[in-house]
Design a protein around this nucleic acid. Sequence first.
DNA 1: CTTCGTTCCTGTACGC
DNA 2: TGCGTACAGGAACGAA
Length: 297
Amino acid sequence: MPELPEVEVVRRGLDRWTTGRTIAAAEVLHPRSVRRHEAGPADFAGRLAGRTVLSPRRRGKYMWLPLRADAEDEPGEALLAHLGMSGQLLVGKPDREREKHLRVRMVFDDDGHDLRFVDQRTFGHLMVADLVPDAFAAGALVPEPIVHIAADPLEDAFDADAFYGALRRRKTGIKRALLDQSLISGVGNIYADEALWRARLHWARPTETMTRAEAVRVLEAAREVMGAALAVGGTSFDSLYVDVDGESGYFERSLEAYGRRDEPCRRCGTPIRRDEFMNRSSYSCPVCQPKPRRARY
DNA sequence: CTTCGTTCCTGTACGC
DNA sequence: TGCGTACAGGAACGAA
């Protein structure tokens, strides 16, 4: 499942393969993949044809390819992408076989490698969006549909004090807060569990009573674990998350909590527990991460 | 306003 | 072998 490190791996791959190239045509094979492009698939394709893509940007789990403006005074646009659960952006020879779940295909005017959006579960999406001023980084631009997405902890624009203040005002549990992309972006179920294990915090720890030291601990843990994952190409549980050339990442072997039900905690040996949480799974160590007396879900 | 449950989707694993 | 069911879960949306 692509979270911040996996999306960053893909962003870097795109930077290498598509930056500066001009899209000749885009073909939408499944309308659901462009459902957030409200003007429809034909408009989506029309807005991309003839446009040159610039160096890709990322915030949290979203990435976007700015499109070179036709004229100086035109509002900027970008091709915005979210991989959802199973989305892949793949680069390869245009004449290779079509993937079973190929949803959108873009070819370039140099007849070189094409760009394909492949997505089994169709939770991901692509759209062309206007760029607007960023609420977090002065002078920067972000696609309008993601102005509500907070800076991620690997950005300079991330404000740890503001994050701590928001935690204290919230009446919820720390994991729910970590997964709330309007508070901190880029963290999904896997890295939330890993960060909480490293910070020795239970997922239901109420945020309104958290100390600054605890907040700093979980933030540092999130940065460390996502940085380490990025360094080895991300986490690939199955073939659903891959780089732009189809390669898997190697971080799965380094996971300490996620997916390790009944396996010994690598700090204390206690079997890792699995709890139901938000209709999904939460993994933690019963000893290192004791459940708080007043838990919040 | 905040908080939280529901919903979308398809392939895999597993019990009977 | 085949069928039904649980599970994987990001984030928009709507209800309370």
